[in-house]
Simulated scan of single mutants.
Amino acid sequence: MLRPVDDQRLGAALRALRRRRRMRQVDVAAAAGVSRSTISRLERGHVGTLTLGTLRAIFAVLDARIEITPLWRGGALDRLLDERHAELVGRLAGILQGAGWETAIEVTFSHYGERGSIDILAAHPARRALLVNEVKIDLTSIEETVRRSDAKTRLAVTIGEQRFGWRATTVARLLVLPDDATTRRRVARHAPVLGAAFPDRGHKIRRWIRAPGGRLSGLWFLADVRPGNVRGDRVGSSRVRRSRTTPTRA
């Protein structure tokens, strides 16, 4: 079990790792691009104004990494994140069901040594289509997200046949993320990787869900539902323009 790390323990860990590698403070400092006094202060538990990037660079010299775990009201943060994930899953399931899809939530699998679960496995019997939906509240590891999605998509035909009783001829996938500024910035920073793995976006995704067929590998930002907040992520919705009335002269 991981233990919470305070500033003093972080400094002690750095000192222990440095001594194990038989390195001097000046050696670590030079490799990390910081001053020796920075290493000295950090080993004494004075994290101060050091940035996360600097801390990661220092520990990387010693083949270690920094992981940040926010703590809030005991375990309440985990419950908060789980609730947000469940809300987004429910939102997506409602959209798919409204477009005529059958949905199975949290579908677990174990095939050929690969295990995991699919957030929503959606089936369209009339089109013999399956849609593998991965819902993420936070993109913590881009490469791992892509790798897991590849595996689930590859196994989807077998999983779907066991779940729904028929064999799909079309398999597509979606990575669904909350539509907020932070998530969009993170996606933009990793555009080359995510764009190659999930090239399809909004309009194409909505068209495909209405009439599945052919290839789809999409990344979809799904908005939260709030009173008065109607966003364009509803499949099958149409925009109604008010006609202009021109007053007639008597």
Rank of each mutant, 00 (worst) to 15 (best):
L130S: 02
F164L: 08
R148Q: 09
T145H: 04
G75E: 08
F164A: 07
D138L: 14
V135S: 04
V107A: 06
S149P: 06
H85N: 13
R127E: 12
W72C: 08
R189P: 10
T182G: 12
E102Q: 15
V187C: 09
L96V: 11
S149E: 10
A191P: 05
G94Y: 03
I205G: 00
H111W: 08
G74M: 10
I205S: 02
G160K: 00
R84T: 02
A122P: 01
V157P: 06
I205P: 00
H124W: 08
I68A: 07
T108L: 09
R207W: 00
A76I: 07
G94A: 10
L80P: 01
I159T: 05
T182F: 11
A122G: 03
R115F: 06
H85Q: 12
L174S: 07
R127Y: 11
E144C: 07
V135H: 05
N133R: 01
I118Q: 13
V89M: 14
V132E: 07
D138W: 15
T182H: 12
A104M: 10
D180E: 15
P199G: 03
A93E: 14
A60M: 04
A172Y: 01
R206T: 13
R173W: 02
E67C: 04
P192A: 06
G202C: 01
T140Y: 13
L88Y: 06
V132T: 07
A60K: 09
H111F: 11
V146M: 11
E134A: 05
R154N: 08
E106S: 14
L121R: 01
D138S: 14
E106N: 15
G100K: 05
R154K: 05
V187N: 09
D179W: 11
F198H: 06
E106F: 13
I205C: 02
E143G: 13
I142K: 06
V132K: 06
A76R: 10
E102T: 15
I142P: 01
H203D: 13
L77K: 14
H203T: 11
L62V: 08
V61C: 03
L155Q: 12
D150S: 05
T108F: 14
A188P: 01
L62M: 03
E144L: 13
N133I: 14
W72V: 02
R184S: 10
N133C: 15
V171K: 00
E102A: 14
E87G: 09
D63S: 12
G100H: 04
E87M: 10
A60F: 03
E67K: 05
V171D: 00
F109T: 04
A93T: 11
D200A: 12
D138P: 03
S117W: 12
A76L: 07
R206M: 07
L88P: 02
R167C: 09
I105V: 15
H203V: 10
R128M: 04
A129W: 00
G98F: 06
V176K: 02
W166R: 03
A122F: 01
F164V: 08
L155C: 06
H190D: 12
T145V: 10
V193D: 14
A86W: 06
T108E: 15
A93G: 13
I118N: 00
P125C: 04
R184G: 08
G75F: 03
T169C: 05
